[in-house]
Design a protein around this nucleic acid. Structure first.
Lengths: 337, 337
DNA sequence: TTGTATGCGTTATCAA
DNA sequence: TTGATAACGCATACAA
């Protein structure tokens, strides 16, 4: 490598490395003229300060890590976009990790990140069902951490979530008002906190409107597209629901595919609404009614929270929780008649 | 910080730092028993080798950077997913950068990455219209770089692309065979190499089937959703095309919105096909005919190519080009009658 | 097999 | 205002 470092730069200018170094630090004492000389030469030689050396020295990385369950997901893409914009504006870099819903990966990522590679972590969790006390074991040494959307309730750290309970309640209420009597709830993992909250909103809405809650109408789906479609076809045929509320976007799609296959008409035979941040929900056949989460804002807010922690560690309540509101869009898939 | 480093670990074990260091390097001479002792203590103390120190020492980062035009985009999300899987399997980390189609950002990202932060770069470019000779100026010092999808034709570096010309030709041919006589081509940036190739396939297909090429039917769109819809409504009204071929996914969506607004029926009045990797294209109203690029594979292949460069720099032809095939899906949006 | 010493590129402290 | 020097945490050449 003919890489230019601070030493070569110093040699070329007949200066010491410390003087050169100072030229890149804003607050240091250095004459304006030498500074200019240095910067000019730096540009000419295409000098880039070695990040690893700086960070080893300064003990921080100007990098934040983002851990999400999956990358090929409209919702998380939007969230990452929100995070990236904030980080980019602050001159921070972003490391991306996908757990693919494997808890061990999450643990491994987090542990490895505690080697100085990142200054903070933004995460949507994967392993609600597991023992995630590993986060507490890091104790004092734990990096600043912000949860978004999917959180661990028993870990004390700032979080950004949406008003899932209210949204679920509203969505269920909407189905009831559109005339549904047998409303299925499509869960993806009942044990996930987010699953529980959303399900509770559904259950309470039924109660409020005096519709009996039936356990069999809670349909627990998998992570496999094809499996879900088969499972739903079976369920729709035997259980004959007249409404479906899906707790995540992809289950709404699975519902559509299932209905196409078994010739159920949406919304005539079955009304459908689901959590989804899909911008083209109006283009679906039929247009999908959605509970739309402000995904990009969620990411933005989480990033802002993390930067607050980084800049003013004591200024932020570790138990702070920011709640953003989702919005209900009524479209063709839940229309009457 | 009560961070444990190799020194503390050595102290705790009454060993030297070099011995401890060796325990983590596979090939070093070290007795099995001491190695075990060290690893056990490391686990107990939750020791993580400092990445910056190692990398400063070894002059590599085990990190690759991915630069894309945008993050909130189904296609790039899939590509990133493909990259992440390969990198993750190799124990590499991924830095993500979004240019939001701003060329200066691209230049800035690339230049900054040449400070040791990443070992290689995978990029889908943004600034075809600009002077991207900056990449050549880095000359010998340039990091291993792989282009995917959107490339600079005049920069010699490995690339992974799709058979855009053939796909465009087929898509246009398909529209012709479905009876279209006035086929509009929706471009996003005529000067982008990818735009040119795709447009050429369209032009040549017209020629082949003796349909006169009309400049006015090339509609240059913007990056703004709303603007595009307005622009398309105007264009469809005045130009009265009977077929539309969109060079990127989001223009197909814009086309749908425009048609809904001005009461054009797809496919009766206007047949639509577009480049798109959207998995739920069959769920649109009407189901969208697509040229589907193997987005995830593209990312995977690009990553594999980059790792080959990293592992065997001389083994790979810098001008190598891998072409993956897209697939044409005929759906309702281009059906006859 | 283990320990000592050195340097990776940078920045901070101190002295000039 | 500038220069010499030490240190950040780790890995290797060399010595023991």
């Amino acid at each position: 490598m003919d890489n230019v470092n601070i030493k070569k730069l110093a040699q070329a200018l007949h200066l010491s490395t410390s003087t050169v170094s100072r030229a890149f630090r804003d607050n240091s004492d250095i004459s304006a003229t030498t500074k200019e000389r240095i910067l000019a030469m730096a540009k000419q030689l295409n000098y880039q300060p070695n990040h690893y050396a700086s960070n080893l020295r300064e003990q921080k990385s100007k990098t934040i890590a983002v851990i999400v369950p999956e990358l090929a997901n409209n919702y998380f893409s939007l969230a990452i976009q929100g995070i990236e914009r904030v980080a980019s504006a602050k001159g921070y870099h972003i490391l991306i990790y996908a757990t693919n819903d494997q808890f061990e990966k999450e643990v491994s990522f987090i542990k490895h990140l505690h080697n100085g590679r990142a200054d903070g972590i933004i995460m949507s969790v994967s392993g609600e069902a597991n023992d995630h006390n590993y986060l507490n074991e890091l104790s004092k040494k734990r990096l600043p951490l912000v949860f978004f959307d999917r959180v661990y309730e028993d870990i004390i750290t700032p979080r950004v979530i949406t008003n899932d309970y209210e949204s679920s309640f509203s969505a269920t209420k909407h189905l009831i008002q559109q005339g549904c009597k047998r409303i299925a709830y499509l869960a993806v993992n009942k044990t996930l906190s987010i699953g529980k909250t959303r399900m509770q909103g559904y259950i309470d809405a039924l109660k409020k409107f005096k519709i009996p809650f039936q356990e069999e109408l809670i349909i627990d789906c998998t992570n496999n597209y094809k499996e879900n479609i088969d499972l739903l076809k079976e369920a729709f045929t035997t259980l004959k629901p007249d409404g479906v509320f899906t707790s995540v976007e992809r289950l709404a799609f699975a519902t559509y595919y299932a209905c196409y296959d078994i010739n159920l008409s949406i919304p005539k035979d079955l009304k459908v609404i689901g959590f989804s941040s899909l911008e083209i929900a109006p283009l679906l056949n039929p247009a999908l009614s959605t509970v739309t989460q402000p995904a990009s804002d969620l990411g933005k807010t989480a990033a802002e929270l993390l930067f607050k922690m980084l800049e003013n560690p004591n200024d932020i309540n570790p138990a702070s929780e920011v709640v953003l509101n989702s919005k209900l869009f009524q479209r063709e898939s839940t229309s009457k008649g």
